[in-house]
Design a protein around this nucleic acid. Sequence first.
DNA 1: ATAATGACTATAATACTATAACGGTCAATT
DNA 2: AATTGACCGTTATAGTATTATAGTCATTAT
Lengths: 192, 192
Amino acid sequence: MIQDKKLNIINAAMKSFSHFGYKATTMDQIAKIAQVGKGTIYTYFSSKEDVLNEIIKLYVNEMRQVARGAIIQEDSFVKNFNAALHAITKFQEEHELMIKLSQEVKDMGTPEVIEVLQEVEDEICEFIEMKITAAIQRGELQKCDPKMTAFLMFKMYINLVNDWKERHQALDQDEITGFIKMYFIEGIGNKK
Amino acid sequence: MIQDKKLNIINAAMKSFSHFGYKATTMDQIAKIAQVGKGTIYTYFSSKEDVLNEIIKLYVNEMRQVARGAIIQEDSFVKNFNAALHAITKFQEEHELMIKLSQEVKDMGTPEVIEVLQEVEDEICEFIEMKITAAIQRGELQKCDPKMTAFLMFKMYINLVNDWKERHQALDQDEITGFIKMYFIEGIGNKK
DNA sequence: ATAATGACTATAATACTATAACGGTCAATT
DNA sequence: AATTGACCGTTATAGTATTATAGTCATTAT
């Protein structure tokens, strides 16, 4: 029953953050949606920011599940990389939360939101890093710094999925897999 | 003599934009520094934005010169890529203009400035694109879309030079050359 | 004639102030 | 022991008065 109340609050906050963003959501609103008194929120959370952080923690866990679910043991590293990132992207599109928070950072720059989005990015990079380390061990990838490789691959993925389409046309999943493979795995140099 | 006045104005505006940014620079200020009446500015330029655009046009030309100057015919594509980008970066650090304008975009989002910075980025990408096309023709690079390759290489360079150092430590020019070569040219895949 | 000028204007940004809304607390209530 | 909403100090917002700014144009200088 105690967990029930906390869950109500989390769900209410999640809903409101997704619809209106972090700043535009008031504690009174969360309390109203959750059907609890405002004070009750503070028995489970220390502040508004704390509510956001807990929600992101749950969200990141779900995201990790989704990414794991997209991976097929027998498939190549690149294929799984793209499958996982694509699954994460789709997950984020389905749940408005990240989209709304990204918007908020873009046009208001709310510091608390900047911080949690950075955390989400770090988590994704860490996930990729693990997969890279494994791929190196099984000999699929050459020795390289897993942290930096993860960072660069993630950035390239975002460049391909989001930034490229702003100036040219959008790419589908297979095209992206192809490009990542071409540029990152095989390289575009010609051996002499 | 007519060119002299226009040049005065351009130099005055350049100085003021570099010190105070675009928004914080007033036409009265430009006129004062250039030692002309404000009305005179409008015989050479149609608007404040026009002044900015002409300055950027000159700036991009200088940048191109600098980039060309950094290139050594006998050197490899990657080496020249890094030399050129490094020269551009140093050029931008020496002349405060770009740094000030980037700041302004970050904390005020002035639309006119966003636009010219995008133009500068496009110009750099076009420069890289030319070099890539040449490298493909002489067989140093595999066949690939030069526009996208230029875009991705530029972004990776920025990721390495700017974004990585925010979370970890800065990399020097040789390290960056090494990474670009490793990830982009040779690839990190292991042939079976 | 032509080019240059700065007082002038309409508009947009800023500073100021009064008001409302907010996050967080806590005495009263269940 | 858990829950609550009226309450408080602070911050954000709205409304308004004032200033500053981009751009014009009649006047002046060349």
